[in-house]
Every structure is written in C-alpha cells, then in structure tokens.
Write a protein that binds this DNA or RNA. Structure first.
Lengths: 109, 109
DNA sequence: AGAATAGGTGACTATATGGTCACCTGTCAA
DNA sequence: TTGACAGGTGACCATATAGTCACCTATTCT
C-alpha cells in the first residue's frame, strides 16, 4: 500500500474525518477524550486512530499511560497541490468567493 | 450519503485518482481515451467516472455520441480549507519548502 | 439502410472495510 | 502492593466496494 493510498483510505471514513475535525479544533487529546465524543466503543475509535496515524494524518506522543494525538496537515496540503496548480487556484478561489457571497445574500442568518 | 462522503469515497480509489491525474494533465477527454490508458475493461472505467462525477470531482459535457470529461478542483480546495487554517498553512508551507530543499541537496538529479 | 462506434445498465462474485468482543500490558495512586 | 485506569491485540461477522460480463441505446459514416 503506497503512502497516498494510506492517506486517502484514511480520509474515506466519516468517523475518521470527524476525529480530524476534533483535533483541528484542539490538539493533544487522549483516546479516552476522543472516544467520549463518539457513539462507538473504544476499540472502534482506536482502530480509526491507528489508521490515521499510519497515514501520517495524526502524530502522537506518549505521556505516562496516556497517548496524546495531534493533527498533521502536511498530507492535506499535498492533496491540494496534486490537483490544483496556480492557474486553477485562481479560478477556484474566485468561484468559492462568489459562492460565499451568494449564500450570504440568500441566507443572511 | 452526504456530499463530503461522496467526495472522499471517490478519492479513496487509486484508479480514480489516476483518472483525475490524467484530467489534470489535459481536460476534455472521452471515456475511450481514458480507458486506453488503463489495464481495465471499459465498464470498470465507466463506473469510476460515474463515481467521480456524482462526487462533483469531474464534470461532463456531451458532444454528439461522445462525453467529454473535465476536472473540477473546487471540492479539492474545500478539503484543504477544512483542516488548514491560516496559521497551519504557514507551518505546512515552511515544512514543505524545507523538505523540497533537502531533497534537492540529497538527490540533485 | 446498415455497419461501426461511443456510451450505458443490472446482475454477479471476490475481496476489503467497519465495528465489536474477550483478553492482555503498562502506569498511576492510595 | 493491589486495585483502578489508559491503552493495545487478534479473531470474528456483516456490509460495502472493485471489477467483469451479457446485453442495450444513440450517433456517425458510407
């Protein structure tokens, strides 16, 4: 299994993306803490974290009997750079800016 | 299945990523043309293209009996923005620049 | 019109993946 | 030092996914 295979397979699961969201909000959480936010057994969460770690999307540090989890954004950036060059980047940003503006007008919540 | 589920599931397969690579090189290809670059039957390629299209990563235009395929980079950019904020972006770019520099020194091919 | 060409559908099989459980290891604190 | 706590492993089952095939439709060219 190649590196990029590990990364994209890791991102293919909703639970794992949610774990990344949690770590994006705040880094350095333990398994116990991450587990408490999910409707799943500890074992399920542990498997998901292992897959994220093997892919390099999460890096960890041990601290006594705890294991702290951190988000690593480098692979995410590499996905971006694979299919978005400088030319497409201008197009895409213009489209997203337009989209944001329209949504702001339609739904000024 | 939510939008982001469709996108990440679509990206989870190596063949589909290769199809995006081909379209990144050059847009507007037909199924026949894309098929010729892969060791797979037409049906397999067609299924993959349908999944990419359902996810919005590929958009198509019919032209007579041909169907032309184009890469849409907007979902890719949204993945980036989900886990990379301005702060992390600086970190990540610095790391990738350093990495590129080191690889340049080690392997000046 | 009729043959060749480009694309499309539904059913099927083998394999990969998500989730759970019984059971185990290492660390902390009274 | 012993009990509670955080984390870890291997086996297991149900479901999802990749790939193929027989068969079908629409367009083009002579």
């Amino acid at each position: 299994m190649t590196d990029d295979d590990l990364i994209f397979k890791a991102l293919a699961d909703k639970t794992r993306r949610f774990l990344l969201d949690l770590l994006f909000q705040r880094d350095g959480r333990t398994l116990k803490e991450l587990e408490s936010g999910l409707a799943m057994t500890r074992f399920g969460v542990m498997k998901h974290l292992k897959i994220l770690e093997d892919a390099g999307l999460v890096v960890t540090r041990r601290s006594g009997r705890e294991k702290l989890h951190f988000l690593n954004a480098v692979p995410i950036r590499m996905i971006h750079d694979r299919w978005i060059d400088k030319y497409r980047e201008r197009e895409v940003e213009a489209l997203l800016a337009l989209k944001a503006e329209l949504e702001n007008k339609e739904d000024p919540s």
